[in-house]
Simulated assay, not measured.
Amino acid sequence: MTFETITLDIRQGVARLALNRPDKMNSFNGTMHDELRAALQQVQDDASVRVLVLTGHGRGFCAGQDLADAEVRFVPGEGTPPDLGDVVERRYKPLVMQLASLRVPTIAAVNGIAAGAGASLALVCDMVVATESAAFMLPFAKIGLIPDTACSWIVPQRLGFARAMGLALTGEKLPATKAAEWGLIWEAVPNDDFAARIDALAAQLATMPTKALVRTRQAMLTASSHTLEQHLTLEGMLMREMGRSADYVEGVSAFLEKRAPRFTGA
């Protein structure tokens, strides 16, 4: 399938999906939404894929919504503002849910600014690795909006109320190094080491027990809404499933035989 606003490359178990509107800092438009969802479905359906790497072409990861796009464009004094709630429900909510439920682990490789919905897109991924020169922004308040695309759900959980509100109310840039220090992302890497670090991490996850990694995501994402008893029940259910998987058999066999495991994702 040929794409206009993204690129997708799949090889050796790794799907590399890159936003490709570098002249617009990879900001979202309707075509990008459609193509992202199609690409994620392709990854979902391809049994050879064991991990997804999501990044951006050019000097930015994603600057959020393109305000010049027809679906959201608004000139004050010329007609009624668009229904942004409809855009969230029809565009961003399905995209976030599709990414958050993908059958393989996901890595956001943040190569530059990640702002607004672009920050959300990165933070929805299972792991976020950024260049030290990258930064995260929640600039919604600067145009009279609220953090959306799951930002107001993810950021407070990771940073706590005070830091999340500070970022949302001021719209200031959070450098990647501080984002890692605060626990918003996994790590910030020197620019010169970034590509090698992403390659190594993707290769590592591509050889691990895929189902167990995804079930770990499920457990982590539901933890905050569960009581202790409810979560122990979920853990039991997931452990029952994983304990009957081929990768568990292989993992135990490799441990007993003192060799490296050869996981297949089954």
Rank of each mutant, 00 (worst) to 15 (best):
M1N: 10
T2R: 15
I6G: 06
I10Q: 04
R11E: 14
G13Y: 01
N20A: 11
P22W: 09
M25S: 14
S27G: 12
F28M: 11
F28N: 00
T31Q: 10
D34H: 11
E35I: 04
L36F: 14
L36S: 07
Q41Y: 10
Q41R: 15
Q42L: 11
V43P: 02
A47Q: 14
L52N: 05
R59Y: 08
G60V: 02
F61P: 07
A63P: 01
L67K: 07
A68K: 10
A70S: 11
E71Q: 12
R73H: 14
R73E: 13
R73Y: 15
D86Y: 14
V87G: 00
V87K: 08
V88E: 15
R90M: 06
R91Y: 12
Q98N: 07
L99Q: 08
L99I: 01
G112A: 03
G116W: 04
L121E: 04
D126W: 05
M127N: 10
M127Y: 15
A134D: 02
A135I: 01
F136V: 04
M137Q: 14
F140W: 09
I146F: 11
C151E: 12
S152I: 09
S152K: 12
I154H: 04
P156M: 08
Q157M: 09
R158W: 03
G160E: 06
M165R: 13
G166P: 00
L167Q: 03
K173Q: 08
P175L: 12
T177A: 09
K178L: 15
E181Q: 09
G183I: 01
E187P: 01
A188F: 11
F194N: 00
Q204A: 09
S224G: 05
H226G: 00
H226D: 12
L228T: 12
E229M: 06
T233S: 09
M242D: 11
M242R: 11
G243L: 09
G243C: 05
Y248Q: 14
V249T: 13
G251K: 04
V252C: 03
L256N: 07
K258C: 03
F263D: 00
